[in-house]
Design a binder for these strands. Structure first.
Lengths: 98, 98
DNA sequence: GGTTTAATTCGATTTTGATCGAACAATATC
DNA sequence: GATATTGTTCGATCAAAATCGAATTAAACC
């Protein structure tokens, strides 16, 4: 299981980020990650199938919304808040205010 | 051609607004409307088919992003900036900053 | 009334994205 | 090495959304 290559913050696009957020499950994940420093996939799973969630994590990674750190068998996800704030100031604060 | 019923600002949802923004054409429309008080559909048309654009205008109306005022045969669209700012402070400023 | 203009609605097609079971990979533990 | 745990990948299916031509509505104008 290789490390993921996350997009550079300069490569993030507003459209890409908005697309990443435009799904109820992903928005929920992002808003949860706004409240904690990081969370494993299992902690965010709920009662959904793992393969579905894995898809959403990938979309969130690809759009630059989250970073996944692999430690042993667990994957810890965190919001790329600083990168997002730098590229799109105020956006995530508005999204996380809900 | 009846007047449209726009959703009340209290009925707007963050997910709905994000969905409305998560399309390249619609994002372009919204960003354009951020720079002018209002614009007719024709003014925003570009070289796209009218029926496609009409679809996007409807999505934008339904998500609460824009208001359409009918005057004669023309439809003037404006961003619902005040309503959006009240419900989701900072969101549109971030989107329009691009 | 006939014509032009602006935009929508209808309906069919295509494309995109979500869902999820089953198989797989990688680590940890015994 | 065997087993359990965590999460991904594959592949198929299903649902949602975009696209756009053709017909339609409505107002404006001659």
């Amino acid at each position: 299981m290789p490390d993921y290559d996350h997009p550079a913050s300069d490569d993030l696009t507003l459209l890409g980020v908005l697309r990443g957020l435009a799904d109820p499950i992903r928005l929920e994940i992002v808003q949860h990650l706004g409240k904690v420093p990081e969370a494993s996939c299992a902690a965010l799973l709920g009662d959904r199938p793992r393969s579905s969630m894995s898809h959403h994590f990938q979309v969130l990674r690809d759009s630059g919304l989250l970073h996944t750190r692999i430690q042993g068998v667990q994957h810890f996800n965190s919001l790329r808040k600083e990168d997002l704030d730098r590229r799109f100031p105020g956006l995530m604060d508005a999204v996380l205010a809900e």
